[in-house]
Design a protein around this nucleic acid. Structure first.
Length: 425
RNA sequence: GGAGAGAUGGCUGAGUGGUCGAAAGCGCUCCCCUGCUAAGGGAGUAUGGGUUAAUAGCCCAUCGAGGGUUCGAAUCCCUCUCUCUCCGCCA
């Protein structure tokens, strides 16, 4: 949610900023609603003040034993008027609210111009893709040849966009997750958290998935309103909702491993081969909760923490700055890490690191107190994958493949697999 | 799943229809007094919104949430949520 004060006082700048994303802010509608809200709210509050005064007067008159009948009569007529005002104000407020909940975050000035992912800007690359003296296979061919990746079994159980893994591959994914968690907690100062995988609508509204992106989510068919989390960002960031944190308690850095569930509606035909795009995948997520002045630096730090994982795994990758048209709804700036996949001969997203500024904090009312005598202010929130385990597994398979179809285990993972250095059929 | 109790400001805890946004205590902040690691006196100390140059005033809202009754609700009624205790069940 954008700062409502800014929307009122600095609308032109806001509209121009949102236009960079290709978002057309309904300025006329907003100004009209806002003007109506203002007068209506003032009138309503005035009526209420009058009612309060009269009620007090009635109480005092009654205490003195005076006749209160005429006073009561006057109150009756004022009551209907107040009620009408109340109702209209509630309508206007609801309209304004839903308008505002659908508006994406403002972009940071450093976000490059552009419309789609084709306009993203490569910032740096790390390492160079290895040359194979045989034809590199993709993870599907490798996994099926190993007999450890089974899409047929998965589709029998759950349909398309699911995978079953067995043996070495299943263990390898677990090792990756374990390694990532250990690295972030032991070397990068994160606190590991375990969180619910089912969340309520308020949490999703807090991080920005709702109300606009309900189609991307899996809702539980139950009288209780649960959704499966699309990312750990949702439960982890919402841990600070409706709180006022003391300055001394900040910054917070959390890491969580969770499965993620995405409906992938609207991605028909995209990445249908293999497990690049699944309804269910494992991810290690990093979340920072910081004072506003620190969020720019925190984004760089968080990104470097995700990079450290790929470096330790010796996977070639590049860092791109998302362009204006590609930055997500809640973010004001995003870096993507893209890992090299020999099977596809291209870089694919494996981590997305975003600074959401105060956008999510406003939605969930997560605040901090800058100083003893100061009022609470919205915090800044950041999140990033550190990294997506399913895609990390694919990257390891494809980059570490041998001519015979076996897969070498990256050095840092070997201790997690009982010293094993190769995955074989 | 069954039975019961509860939810008030940073904390403890009063308050069952009328100057209650809320006593008191604790904590915290500032000032005064005091020559000393103490005590005493005074003032202040919630959040959101509106208005405003203003985190100065003033106004509105908020006593778990949402409805209702009433001229008036922390107080009465209804629904829901959560917490605690006991029993049952389970990982």
């Amino acid at each position: 949610m954008l700062d409502p004060k800014r929307l009122r006082t600095d609308l032109d700048t806001v509209v121009a900023n949102l236009a960079r994303r290709g978002f057309d802010f309904p300025a006329d509608e907003f100004v009209q609603l806002e003007a109506r809200r203002k007068t209506l709210q003032q009138e309503t509050e005035q009526l209420r003040a009058q009612r309060n005064d009269s009620a007090k007067a009635i109480g005092m008159a009654k205490a003195k034993g005076e006749d209160i009948a005429p006073l009561l009569e006057a109150q009756q007529s004022a009551k209907a008027k107040l009620e009408a005002h109340d109702n209209e104000l509630a309508d206007i407020t609801a309209s304004l609210q839903s308008l505002q909940l659908g508006v994406p975050n403002l972009l940071d000035d450093s976000v490059p111009a552009g419309k789609s992912e084709d306009d993203n800007v490569e910032l740096r690359t790390w390492s160079t893709p290895a040359a194979f003296d045989f034809e590199a296979r993709d993870h599907v061919a490798l996994g099926e040849a190993l007999g450890q990746l089974d899409f047929e079994a998965a589709s029998k159980v759950s349909g398309s966009r699911f995978a079953v893994m067995r043996g070495g591959l299943a263990s390898l994914q677990r090792a990756l997750i374990q390694f990532m968690l250990d690295t972030h907690t032991q070397q990068h100062g994160y606190t590991e958290v375990y969180v619910p995988y089912l969340v309520q609508p308020d949490a999703l509204q807090g991080t920005g998935q709702l109300p606009k992106f309900a189609d991307d989510l899996f809702a539980i068919d139950d009288e209780r309103q649960f959704y499966l989390i699309p990312t750990a960002e949702v439960p982890v960031t919402n841990m600070v909702r409706e709180q006022v944190l003391e300055a001394a308690a900040l910054p917070l850095q959390f890491v969580a491993h969770t499965p993620c569930f995405r409906s992938e509606a609207g991605s028909y035909g995209q990445d249908t081969r293999g497990m690049i795009r699944q309804h269910q995948f494992e991810k290690v997520e990093l979340v920072h909760i910081v004072p506003p002045a620190q969020s720019d630096a925190a984004l760089e730090a968080l990104t470097s923490h995700a990079e450290a994982i790929l470096q330790a795994l010796e996977l070639p990758y590049r860092v791109v700055a998302l362009c204006a048209g590609d930055v997500g709804f809640s973010a004001r700036k995003t870096y993507d890490l893209e890992v090299w996949l020999p099977g596809q001969q291209r870089y694919r997203e494996i981590s997305s690191c975003s600074n959401c500024g105060d956008f999510q904090a406003r939605r969930m009312s997560a605040r901090w107190r800058p100083g003893n005598d100061q009022k609470p202010e919205p915090l800044h929130t950041l999140n990033g994958s550190g990294v997506a385990a399913g895609r990390a597994l694919i990257a390891v398979m494809e980059n570490y493949q041998n001519a015979d179809g076996s897969i070498r285990v990256p050095t840092v993972l070997q201790s997690y697999l009982g010293g094993r250095d190769t995955i074989v059929a």
